[in-house]
Design a binder for these strands. Structure first.
Lengths: 246, 246
DNA sequence: TCGCTATATTGGTCCAACCATAGAGAGGGG
DNA sequence: CCCCTCTCTATGGTTGGACCAATATAGCGA
């Protein structure tokens, strides 16, 4: 007997689930847009015909999902959030605690997805986007020399995002950002030591991109990624998970 | 579950944030494992020294993060969840939903990602996974004949998830699920009319997969996706977002 | 005009009930 | 002895009231 989802339950979900679904719907059809402010909790409770506590649980759901951001005070409230793939990545990180997600899995997925990204970007990217990538590499190089590790890590990851943006496809940009954020979570366990290699590889990649040589660009990316992967595996980060034995 | 006061009182930030952090910590160090049951809301409220409402918001947070699953009734409660890639995918899907996307963007991204998925699945998929895909197509065919549109749409989209699972890469599975969620929303807006074409194309695809002919399989998928895209564009679905009139 | 204060509005927390659900165990009939 | 049913009860779900904490804004006073 298959789980018959054929019929929706008449008294289906919890009340706050329904509220979240309605807000999601408004988001989808455009009646709510990023930056918009939801009515206050008290007003929502009245409009939905539920108690304020129920509304709060719904809002909590949306906050965790990254759909809204909450502001305190008189002009506060629940505001539709700007798209933030980082939230999604955090969800992945949570899943990481439960599932067995190895560094190999992520590297492999990146290898696949980024191959596409590089190839498409090679065809489509504008001069301006190419310059932005150059600037990014320069900044990483500079920050690395200064020893500004924290800022450097951010700019570092941003390279992948810029590359994904260069495909001109927003879906791809979001997917890439999520993976990049996830990667950064894992890379924390590795520590900083590979800057030189990364920067040099990226400069080679940029040269191929400028020449619109997709094959060479993809090859450079793949070689670099595999090399990086090997270095990580032989480095401090060993297991497929963070160790939980004392 | 130890009957000592295993939890420290919570206060500093928002109270429920602290609660979630503590539970996360217990999960990390192994004092809580998948399948374990958290104390009841009332007991947790007592142990944490907060109200039951606050505990509920914390539990809601953990539920959204996919950390726990809730069960109703006498032996119910909050149970540490088994790993579920679908949970992580929902967060990504939310991020995608906040971005302004056109159908072209999604189709293009699918074309790219699914090309990879098909190719890899062709190499790695087991007989069992192939059979699951066959069963899926059969069920879609049956539901379509019965006119069970709603359930059909779900099973329909599940095809892509099964395919992604066949790559054996959980990251890929999550990425695909995110896009599939998006796709299901769109498919509902478009309405049912393309079933025959889809089913027939999928049967051809499965034949290629069974023969381990990656090139033909990828080609079949790409041809089908482009065709579908054209049909949608000339159909009821016009704008770059779903519009709900009335 | 500038700066401070009062106030209104908002989210954050708490309480004490009640409802709906579903497992568990008691009871009856075979 | 076993199986079915029925009730009992612990659980999450919901309610509506109250108060606290933060904060933007209007209004007052120097």
């Amino acid at each position: 007997m298959p789980d018959e989802l054929a019929f929706r339950p008449a008294r289906p979900r919890r009340a706050f689930d329904e509220i979240v679904t309605q807000v999601r719907g408004m988001l989808r059809d455009g009646s709510l847009r990023p930056g918009d402010r939801l009515p206050s909790e008290r007003l929502l409770a009245e409009q939905f015909g539920v108690s304020r506590n129920t509304v709060r649980e719904a809002i909590r759901m949306m906050e965790i999902s990254g759909l809204v951001r909450l502001k305190l005070g008189a002009a506060g409230g629940a505001f539709i959030a700007e798209p933030d793939p980082g939230i999604a990545a955090r969800g992945l990180a949570d899943a990481l605690q439960l599932t067995t997600l190895s560094l190999s899995d992520i590297t492999e997925a990146r290898l696949w997805v980024e191959s596409i990204v590089v190839r498409v970007a090679c065809e489509r990217m504008t001069e301006e986007q190419l310059r932005a990538l150059h600037d990014n590499v320069d900044e990483v190089s500079k920050l690395s020399a200064e020893g500004n590790w924290e800022r450097k890590a951010i700019v570092h990851v941003e390279f992948h995002n810029l590359l994904a943006d260069a495909t001109g496809n927003p879906v791809m940009a979001v997917l890439m950002r999520s993976m990049a954020d996830l990667l950064r979570e894992l890379a924390l366990a590795v520590g900083p030591s590979t800057d030189d290699i990364i920067v040099r590889s990226r400069r080679r990649l940029l040269r191929h991109l400028r020449n619109r040589d997709a094959d060479k660009a993809v090859l450079e990316m793949q070689r670099h990624l595999k090399r990086l992967h090997r270095m990580w595996l032989t480095g401090a980060y060993q297991g497929s998970r963070t160790s939980r034995s004392g």
